[in-house]
């Protein structure tokens, strides 16, 4: 690692890659179970996070598994609400009412560990 860092080219490539990934679209799916307080809370919060951090490059779909129970088995849903980050890889699952914004941002690779909150929020 230490050897590669001084080389300008690779650092440039790295930055390029980061920007590409940054610009890539996020495909998110939120699974909820009917109109429960938890569901509502989660929907509101994830929408806010997406608007704040992924504006214009995200695709959020809210699925009510109470209406489509077969999807629950297919997507291996056990807890509700569950947010699945389908793309970019790796696949990640977030369970809960999405109240811990910091953990979501970390999990979505939008924030490095230890970094303070973004100036936007």
């Amino acid at each position: 690692m230490r050897k590669q860092l001084p080389i300008a080219e690779s650092a440039e490539d790295f930055l390029k890659e980061v920007s590409v990934q940054d610009q890539s679209r996020y495909i998110l799916r939120l699974y909820i179970t009917g109109h429960t307080p938890l569901s509502t809370k989660a929907i509101v919060r994830i929408r806010k996070i997406c608007e704040d951090h992924l504006e214009g490059r995200y695709d959020l779909e809210v699925v009510d598994i109470a209406q489509n129970p077969t999807l629950a088995a297919g997507e291996q849903i056990i807890a509700a609400p569950t947010l699945i980050k389908k793309l970019p890889l790796p696949l990640r699952r977030f369970i809960g009412d999405m109240s811990q914004t910091e953990r979501i941002l970390l999990g979505l690779d939008l924030r490095k560990a230890g970094e303070t909150l973004s100036p936007k929020s």
Partner: peptide
């Protein structure tokens, strides 16, 4: 794969 982000329940399991 799991990241806890607050309160949740096992409704998914119940529904399945």
């Amino acid at each position: 794969e799991f990241e806890e982000t607050g309160e949740y329940n096992l409704d998914g399991l119940f529904i399945r």
